[in-house]
Simulated scan of single mutants.
Amino acid sequence: MTGLTLSIEGGIAEIQLDDGKVNALSETMLEQLLAAIEEAAQADAALLICGRPGCFSGGYDRKLIDAGGPACDAMRAAGDRLTLALLDYPAPLVIASTGHAMAKAAFVLLLGDYRVGAEGDFRIGLNEVAIGMTMPDGAMLQAQARLAPNWLNRCALQAEYLTPRQALEAGFFDELQSAEQLLERAREKVRQLAKLDRRAYRETRTLLHARLRMQLGKLFG
């Protein structure tokens, strides 16, 4: 797959986004990511999603956002399906944010069971208002469900770009690691979670996300 690799071994799946640039979530990238997630789910594998060194993802393809029209609508629809696919994932889901994570990519972080962020000069943020866009209802629900209340106004309304340390406090990450240790730690965590009773994990995860899943299901149709 162009810009994306998937490996599955020993009950662990790993998806790496790497288009050589900013891992823009175009419709093509999103469809590839959805297919990889489905393949990992069919294997009942605990899943790790990571980016390329220095950049997890810049979010939706900005060119398509600026142009609008059917191509932009298709991209957003694929993004909505990604949100549901991550919420519905039947096994542990760990995300290693290898650098910058903006807009849709930051919302992806909010859907992981455990998120490890890279220390460094990186920006994490919900930049919708900064680019003149009212935050969609579904995005606001995700922010309200996972971000610390005292950070919600700064992230969602003021579109503040956060450092990794601030992003940890706000709720985008569960821990930070150096770039050199990031993937090793994330792989350790996904192996740890994979050892938990799978049925209990899946059913408890469903209960944990039940309200958000119902709300988003109604919005996304």
Rank of each mutant, 00 (worst) to 15 (best):
Q215W: 03
G54D: 00
R213W: 02
G58P: 02
K195P: 05
A159H: 09
T98L: 04
S26K: 11
L212E: 07
L216D: 00
K218Y: 09
T2F: 10
K63Y: 13
V116C: 07
I49F: 01
A200M: 12
R187F: 00
V129K: 14
N150T: 14
P92S: 06
D73W: 11
E188K: 11
P90F: 03
D113H: 07
G10E: 03
P53D: 09
D73E: 15
L196A: 15
F56L: 02
A194Q: 07
L82Y: 07
A194F: 03
E175W: 04
G120K: 02
P92M: 03
A13P: 07
H209L: 14
Y114N: 07
R199M: 12
L183N: 01
S178I: 04
L207G: 13
I65T: 14
G59P: 01
E31T: 07
Q158G: 06
L111I: 06
A156C: 05
G69Q: 07
A96K: 00
P90G: 04
R211H: 12
G117W: 00
C155F: 11
G125L: 01
G20K: 08
L147P: 01
S26G: 12
R115Q: 09
D18F: 03
D61H: 14
V116M: 06
F173V: 00
L196C: 14
H209Q: 14
I49D: 01
A194W: 02
D174S: 05
D18V: 04
D121V: 02
A148Q: 14
L93Q: 05
Q192G: 13
M29F: 02
Q166Y: 02
E38Q: 08
Q166P: 01
K21I: 13
E180M: 11
D113Q: 05
G10I: 03
Y161G: 13
L87Q: 05
E169Q: 13
A46F: 06
K104Q: 14
S97F: 00
E180V: 10
G171P: 03
G11Q: 09
L47S: 08
A105D: 04
E169Y: 05
H209S: 10
R76C: 14
G112A: 15
K21Y: 13
P92Q: 03
P136N: 05
Q42L: 10
M29I: 04
M29S: 09
E119M: 08
F56G: 01
L162E: 08
F107M: 08
L6M: 08
Y114S: 06
A118K: 00
R146N: 01
A24V: 12
I124T: 11
D61R: 12
T5E: 13
A13M: 07
Q142M: 06
A74S: 09
V22Q: 14
P136R: 04
H209Y: 13
S7H: 12
Q181N: 15
L30A: 02
S26D: 12
G54E: 01
C50H: 09
L126D: 09
Q192S: 15
A179H: 01
A45K: 10
G117E: 00
K195R: 15
A77P: 05
G221T: 08
G58M: 08
F220E: 03
G138Y: 02
L141M: 10
G221N: 09
M135H: 07
L84M: 15
A71D: 14
G20R: 08
C72M: 14
L168Y: 05
L212F: 06
S178D: 11
